[in-house]
Simulated assay, not measured.
Amino acid sequence: MRTVLSVLGRRLASRWWVIGVPYAWLLFFFLVPFLIVIKISLSGVAIAIPPYVPTIDLAQGWASIRDAISQFSFDNYVWLTEGWASIRDAISQFSFDNYVWLTEDDLYWKSYLSSVIIAGVSTIITLAIGYPLAYGMARAKPEWRPTLVMLVILPFWTSFLIRVYAWIGILKNEGLLNQLLLWLGVINEPLIILNTNWAVYIGIVYSYLPFMVLPLYATLEKLDLSLLEAAEDLGCPPWKAFWKITLPLSLPGVLAGCFLVFIPAVGEFVIPDILGGSDTLMIGKTLWVEFFRNRDWPVSSAVAVILLLILVIPIVLFQNQQQKMQERDK
Rank of each mutant, 00 (worst) to 15 (best):
S43T: 03
Y108S: 07
P298N: 04
F291T: 11
S43C: 03
S226F: 06
N320S: 10
D224E: 07
W167P: 05
E174R: 05
A304W: 06
G284A: 05
Y217P: 00
L249P: 14
S6P: 13
V78Q: 08
E268W: 02
F318T: 13
E104P: 13
L234M: 06
Q179N: 13
N76W: 13
P238S: 14
F72R: 13
I283Y: 01
W62E: 11
P51A: 11
L102S: 10
G203D: 08
L180W: 07
C258R: 02
W243N: 15
I313T: 03
V205W: 02
P146T: 13
S300Y: 02
L281Q: 15
V303D: 05
D233I: 03
S95A: 10
L35I: 10
A24L: 12
T147S: 14
M1W: 12
Q71R: 14
K222M: 00
A63D: 15
W25K: 12
V254Q: 01
L35S: 09
G235M: 03
Y77Q: 10
K330L: 14
G136E: 02
K240V: 09
T103A: 09
P132R: 03
P54N: 09
L287I: 13
I245R: 06
Y217L: 01
L214K: 01
F160E: 15
D224V: 03
W17F: 13
P248R: 10
D233L: 05
F211C: 01
M137L: 01
V312Y: 02
E82T: 14
F160P: 12
I118C: 00
F156Q: 15
V4W: 10
L249W: 07
I125F: 06
E290N: 15
A68R: 13
V7W: 07
P33T: 15
F292A: 13
N320R: 10
L80H: 04
R10C: 11
F269A: 06
L151E: 04
E143Q: 08
I313R: 02
D75I: 08
A304F: 06
P314Y: 00
T158N: 12
A199K: 04
L133T: 06
S300G: 08
V299A: 08
E290R: 11
E143N: 08
L317Q: 05
D57C: 08
C258N: 04
W17I: 13
D224R: 05
W17D: 14
I168T: 07
F34A: 13
L225S: 15
F160G: 15
Q60T: 10
K110W: 12
S278H: 06
S14P: 08
A13K: 11
I65L: 14
P215D: 03
I56R: 09
P155K: 03
Y77K: 09
V186Y: 01
V164N: 07
A230K: 04
M137H: 00
W79L: 15
A230S: 07
S301N: 05
A166P: 01
R11W: 05
S226E: 12
A256L: 01
I306L: 08
A304L: 10
L209D: 01
I117Q: 07
E82S: 10
A68G: 12
L249A: 11
L8A: 08
G130W: 00
L151V: 04
W17Q: 13
I129V: 08
S301E: 04
K141P: 01
K222R: 04
F96I: 15
V261L: 00
V149K: 09
T126Q: 04
A138C: 02
D97L: 12
V4C: 11
P142I: 05
F242G: 14
Q319N: 15
T81C: 11
M282I: 06
